[in-house]
Amino acid sequence: MSALEALFIFVGIPLLLAVAITVMVLAPSLAKSKSPRAGRDWHAEPEWFGAPRAVRAIQAGRNSRQIDTESGDGYDPASAGHHGNTVKDEQALTVARDDQGTRGNRDLPAGTNVPVRTEPVTAGPPDDSSRDQTGGASVRW
């Protein structure tokens, strides 16, 4: 075994392994650090999960008053929120259109120009009757 080979085996390979392990350990946290932090400096786009077809229907330019997106072409039934989304009013459409639901964007053909919202959700006061019937909780962190 020459000196060069010995150097490669006893120094080079361990060094490569050490670098590879370091990269694998640090990669997730480096990737995560790009995510915006919660707080006043939050700047990320709003996102919907579980509301795919509302956004798809809007993109298709259907009637904004009563959109039933059940029959949307190419919809993947295995995707989240497979529960017959029916957007009932203009306010809902505003929210869905502006928020660009995750699944909806994913379904759009490449190169589709999608308007992106940069302001807070424009939601009007809820119906009093629905407020009485709903439950839930508020948590601060």
């Binding site: 709003p46 996102e47 919907w48 999960f49 579980g50 928020d99 807070p120 959700v121 939601a123």
Partner: peptide, 10 residues
């Protein structure tokens, strides 16, 4: 049915 919305409130 579950829905999740992450974004600023009005």
């Amino acid at each position: 049915n579950f829905y999740v919305h992450v974004g600023q409130s009005a």
